[in-house]
Simulated scan of single mutants.
Amino acid sequence: MGTTRTNGSLYTSITDRIATVEFGHPASNSFVAELLARLATELRDLSENEEVSVIVLKSEGDRAFCAGASFDELVAVSNLEEGKAFFSGFANVINAMRTCKKLIVGRVQGKAVGGGVGLIAACDYAFAVESAAIRLSELTIGIGPFVIAPAVERKIGIAGLAELSLAPTEWKNAYWGKERGLFAKVLENGREMDQELQVFTSNLASYNPQALTDMKTILWEGTSHWDSLLAERAELSGKLVLSDFTKKALEKFKK
């Protein structure tokens, strides 16, 4: 049973050095600004928690993994400041995942759109089920996946980013994602995925914590400029969302 809270839910449990962070929202596990801020804070806290070696990022239920940012909040943006703040939500989470000292393993049990694909790309390792299709739909509403693009490109390359973002109405299946490096493993169903995930994270959590932290640093080499880069991208998106073209596209979409 998923959460019914309009500002979403976020729960963390820690067992055997593995922290499981679960987010949820009644609108296909999409993110309102408050939930993104809570997730970024939680990841920063876990980064400093010496009882934790590995983080598992998952979402509620057995349907969508994440439908991206809240459509209602996007439609409500009325000035540049609000626009930049709205798009900074995912920027802050991706940067928190990047700078987190702990390895982050994604558990993707269903479809992901937009910012949801960015979250998967910012994981250090990701498991998915066969039904975990992905799509970057931003161009259809007059914006682009600018904030998450660096994370997605880092994982699947510029060609993969182009293939996803320039065909915004097309779903790519989980095996497409695996071939390009977004997913490390694709399993038939949630039960199989959870069994594999359990073995994988238990093994990982048994290794030298300092070696894991050092490995994390190496995996993210060359991204130290992302704090400013993603802030610039949030501003770019904030400007676009105020354009007449985008306002009309959003109106049409709403109907």
Rank of each mutant, 00 (worst) to 15 (best):
M1V: 14
T3I: 07
T3H: 00
T4H: 07
T4F: 06
T4G: 07
S9A: 12
S9G: 01
Y11V: 10
T12I: 07
T15W: 12
T15L: 13
D16Q: 12
D16S: 11
R17S: 10
I18N: 04
A19D: 02
A19K: 01
G24K: 04
G24I: 04
H25N: 11
P26K: 02
V32G: 02
V32D: 03
E42G: 08
E42N: 13
D45M: 13
S47L: 09
E48V: 10
E50D: 14
E51S: 13
V54G: 01
I55F: 02
L57K: 10
L57N: 08
E60D: 01
E60F: 01
G61N: 09
R63T: 12
F65N: 00
C66F: 08
A67G: 11
S70V: 11
D72K: 14
D72W: 09
D72A: 14
L74K: 14
A76L: 05
V77K: 05
E82A: 15
G83C: 07
G83N: 05
K84F: 07
S88W: 00
F90V: 06
A91Q: 04
A91Y: 04
M97S: 05
K102I: 10
L103Y: 00
G106I: 02
R107L: 05
V108Y: 00
G110R: 04
K111Q: 15
V113Y: 15
V113E: 15
G114N: 14
G115H: 02
G116W: 00
I120V: 14
A121S: 09
C123E: 01
C123F: 00
D124Q: 05
Y125R: 08
A126H: 02
F127N: 02
S131Q: 14
A132K: 00
I134C: 09
S137L: 08
S137V: 03
S137K: 11
E138Y: 13
E138I: 06
T140M: 10
G142W: 08
G142A: 09
I143C: 06
G144V: 06
G144E: 12
P145W: 01
V147Y: 04
I148M: 10
A149C: 08
P150T: 01
P150Q: 07
A151Y: 04
A151P: 03
E153P: 00
R154N: 13
L166H: 13
W171R: 10
K172N: 14
K172P: 06
N173A: 12
A174E: 03
W176Q: 07
G177S: 15
K178A: 05
L182I: 05
V186E: 01
E188N: 15
E188G: 15
R191V: 15
E192V: 12
E192W: 11
M193I: 01
Q195P: 04
L197P: 03
L197N: 03
L197C: 03
T201H: 04
T201P: 00
T201D: 04
L204G: 07
N208V: 09
M215W: 12
T217K: 15
L219R: 15
G222P: 08
T223Q: 11
H225M: 10
H225D: 11
W226Y: 05
W226K: 01
E232T: 14
E232F: 12
A234P: 04
G238L: 08
K239G: 09
V241I: 14
S243Q: 12
K248H: 11
A249P: 00
E251Q: 11
K252R: 15
F253P: 02
K254A: 13
K255L: 14
